[in-house]
Amino acid sequence: IGVGARVRPPPRLPERLAVCRAEAAAYGRCVQASTAPGGRLMKDLCAQEFEALRSCFAAAGKKTPRGGL
């Protein structure tokens, strides 16, 4: 099975994703909507939603102290 060669996420990635659940869901919905009939997925289609997710993710990385929430 397998995924790309170097899969070693920093330990706090899951916690940070949990903090940004709303942003992640918004981005996910945007991508999923493009898979519906008539939709077309292309580069940066959901750039706005992703930017929100990424900035939340970055902020969550800074705020949370070592060892998670």
Partner: peptide, 16 residues
Amino acid sequence: LLHRDTMLAAAAVYGE
């Protein structure tokens, strides 16, 4: 290498 942004995006899509 999987791009860090792509990983984050994939995790969001997977969850949704």
